[in-house]
Computed example of a mutant assay.
Amino acid sequence: MEILNSRMILRPRDPQRSLEFYRDVLGLAIYREFPGGTVFFLGQGFLELSGRADEGPSPDQALWLQVRDVRAEFGQLRERGVAVLAEPEVKPWGLHEAWIVDPDGMHIALVEIPADHPLRVDVRQH
């Protein structure tokens, strides 16, 4: 299978509230809008808010967002009143992570990958 594009689709309980959270609070750029939905840029992927749900997301779901400076982003989001699940910390696997939650309960990881982490280091033999 050849994947040409991908996106995560969220069905919010309150579409306007979720639109304002992702657009205004997180500051995600809009890729496109259509009747009943908005698609945001997510680095190399997309996040679509469309439709409506009666219940929030499963606690087994999470959105993983890599940022340049997790402490700075977390601090700004906290000042904007975003609900916090976990303060920024260095995890045993070496990533700097903080966790927040969207208005419907979607868990969102904010992740900073340090310069010396294996995800950023070229491990090929030269």
Rank of each mutant, 00 (worst) to 15 (best):
L4Q: 13
N5D: 12
S6Q: 06
R7E: 11
I9Q: 11
I9T: 13
I9Y: 08
I9W: 04
R11E: 07
R11Y: 14
P12F: 00
P12C: 03
R13I: 15
R13S: 11
R13H: 02
D14S: 12
Q16G: 04
Q16L: 13
R17N: 08
R17L: 14
R17E: 11
L19R: 14
L19D: 04
E20W: 04
E20S: 13
Y22Q: 09
V25E: 03
V25C: 07
V25D: 05
L26N: 03
G27P: 10
G27H: 07
G27I: 03
A29M: 10
Y31G: 05
F34H: 08
F34E: 10
P35M: 09
P35S: 11
P35L: 05
G36Y: 11
G36I: 11
G36K: 13
G36N: 08
G37Q: 09
V39N: 08
V39Q: 12
F40G: 02
F40S: 03
F41D: 12
F41N: 14
F41L: 14
L42I: 14
L42F: 12
L42P: 03
G43A: 09
G43K: 04
G43V: 13
Q44G: 11
F46V: 00
L47C: 07
L49E: 03
S50K: 13
G51Q: 06
G51W: 07
G51T: 10
R52V: 15
R52E: 13
A53S: 15
E55F: 05
E55N: 05
E55A: 07
P57R: 04
P59T: 09
D60K: 06
D60H: 09
A62N: 11
A62L: 11
A62P: 01
L63V: 05
L63I: 05
W64C: 10
L65K: 02
L65F: 03
Q66M: 10
R68E: 07
D69N: 14
V70A: 14
V70Q: 02
A72H: 09
A72D: 08
E73K: 08
F74D: 01
F74V: 08
G75F: 10
G75M: 06
Q76K: 13
L77C: 07
L77N: 09
L77P: 11
R78Y: 01
E79L: 10
E79W: 04
G81L: 15
G81N: 03
V82L: 08
A83Y: 08
V84M: 05
V84R: 06
L85G: 12
L85S: 10
A86K: 15
E89L: 10
K91V: 02
G94D: 05
L95C: 01
E97H: 03
I100F: 01
V101W: 02
V101D: 01
P103A: 10
D104H: 11
G105E: 04
M106G: 02
M106Y: 02
H107E: 15
I108F: 07
I108G: 05
I108S: 04
V111F: 00
E112T: 07
